[in-house]
Amino acid sequence: MDIITILFYLVTSVIILSAISLIIVNNTVHAALLLVLIFFNSAILWLMLKAEFLSIVLVLVYVGAVLVLFLFVVMLLDIPVRKNSNQKLYLLFSVVTSLVMFAELYMVIFYHNFTNEVNIITSSELNNTYQIGLMLFTDYIFSFEVTAFILLVAIIAAIAINMTEKQRSLRQDPGKQILESKKSRLRIIKGNKL
């Protein structure tokens, strides 16, 4: 049993146990922290598969940005921790569904026998980041531009959804106009009171 095998079983068992506790935990902050653990261990797993660039990107972008955003939203909203009622039926249903799906996927993996299909040629003269950059800026340059545009759209959408209207704005609010009644606008004054 070499070091790679031990490392594989250690990392995958940590990921699986954290995933199981993530889906049954009630506290959302704990779930976000478990997700951090899962992403770190997945980065180790990707490093074992010689995908150095993506493993660093996973730590930087996901743990550094997306999960911090998750934690920020969880702590900003202050959601009360609450027990779900009527949980037994859904628990049974979810376990049955996921077991059936896993059995099907495992049958595909087992009977196709992926074990010795391709021989690995790891000795490449270029490193991983160089190879990805070469592909990204030659063959996939159009997809790269589209990805940049998607990120721009995400920035604009996230700002536009949460932008509150200013008080000084001259924009008319149709709802407020409809709810306006005659009594609040019109006052009848008798002549002798003037």
Binding site: I16, A19, I20, L22, I23, I24, Q87, Y90, L91, F93, S94, V95, T97, S98, L99, M101, F102, L105
Partner: peptide, 9 residues
Amino acid sequence: CISIAGIFI
């Protein structure tokens, strides 16, 4: 499959 079960639960 675990995350599918998570969506149900």
